[in-house]
Nucleic acid binder design. Structure first.
Lengths: 213, 213
DNA sequence: TCAATAATCATCCGATCGGTTGATTGTGTC
DNA sequence: GACACAATCAACCGATCGGATGATTATTGA
């Protein structure tokens, strides 16, 4: 899941070894901490997440969070910097806009915890560490929409930036508004069924923008 | 702002009175606490908000929060129950859908702190206290959209509930995604200029859904 | 084989949080 | 004017949080 460099401990040298559970493997430990943190931060947000809960979920001592990441804040930064994982994978060029919209929604299904983590951070409004990739990604998308507009794919009276913003916000519904999802559709915001149908619907909606009389 | 019953203290009886600042007025104190809490909860969310900050902002001793509202949790519940203020004012019937979309966005300009507070709460996914009015409001909106659909105002292939969800999520952008707003449009999410233009743009967008060849 | 170092853990610590206690002051009443 | 009660506050308290300290165990290289 995370492209972390994994150093496999040499098991051939010493025949007397601790059970696999107890074998020391800093990379595996780091990964366990990162995975647990992503879940906790995603579920509760930074302020409400507890380092002891993260350590507990990872099955390690909580001091290791300071040892490896320099504390709660450092751990969060480490996760927040991993933009390539999710954002980079979206290939939006050469696809019709409705498909791009669908992809935006489907992204919320894959790395859900990370997505929710970013949602909390985005809402807090603080400047994003490693925000460069995010901002650059958005700018690229704006330009692509502008190009589509010049090609007549979407109406002329829409501002590309504002259209993208509306798309991103709508696509984030399952992450940002789980309660509204239930209140409006009756579905669970995390369910693949809901997300898939929502992606379809948003693609349809965007499709109606492009169809000319 | 808040429809709280205000008891004006009798000033005529006793000529020797404390300065207006120090005059005791529980309703005014409650209101000051509620206003301050709305700002703090809206800015940081429940978990990150501090009762001492709320009291400090209200200019009162923090004990009064327990005294009047039964603590942090009670204070939050009190605010969360005030749905009529914002939600009830939106008159959506007899307006074309683009205007409804515009109104949804413009709502985020009026009671901004309360809106952000609800956004935090909505994101946490917990069942909403006084969630009944919210859920009922949403259901009414879904039915209105369904009616519009039957009248041919919007395409037949869109599910009214999912369309409403997309609209609500898109309209919440300035509350839920202030960072994305800056990254994408370069504007400040709280600025009336931005919100007004965004409302216009979303109305335009929805308008393109309805126009038939 | 044995130090040296890295990885992990049990325990403690200062800061801060939300809440409580008890005193104090203003206010209306008799 | 004094009593009773409501409103307000200063100070304190237990719980918990994030982080630090120092010991312990595993691993590696000499």
């Amino acid at each position: 899941m995370i492209g972390y460099p994994v150093r496999v401990p040499e098991t051939s040298r010493n025949p007397r070894r601790a059970p696999v559970e107890k074998q020391r493997d800093p990379e595996r430990t780091k990964r366990k901490i990162l995975d647990a943190a992503k879940i906790e931060f995603g579920a509760k947000g930074y302020a409400a997440a507890r380092v002891s809960d993260i350590a507990g979920r990872a099955g390690v001592n909580k001091q290791l969070i300071s040892y490896y990441f320099g504390g709660k804040e450092g751990l969060f930064q480490e996760l927040a910097g991993q933009w390539h994982e999710t954002g980079g994978e979206i290939s939006t060029v050469d696809q019709p806009l409705p498909e791009v919209a669908r992809q935006f929604v489907m992204t919320t299904l894959h790395d859900r915890d990370w997505g929710r983590m970013m949602m909390w951070a985005n809402m807090s409004g603080e400047d994003d560490p490693g925000g460069d990739p995010e901002a650059r990604f958005m700018q690229v998308q704006v330009e692509q929409i502008r190009t589509r507009q010049q090609q007549g794919e979407i109406p002329d009276d829409l501002d590309p930036a504002y259209l993208l913003l509306a798309l991103v916000a709508a696509a984030s519904a399952s992450l940002a508004l789980p309660r509204a999802v239930r209140n409006i559709t009756g579905e669970d915001a995390a369910s693949p069924d809901f997300i898939t149908k929502y992606a379809d619907q948003l693609a349809l909606l965007v499709g109606h923008l492009t169809k000319k009389p």
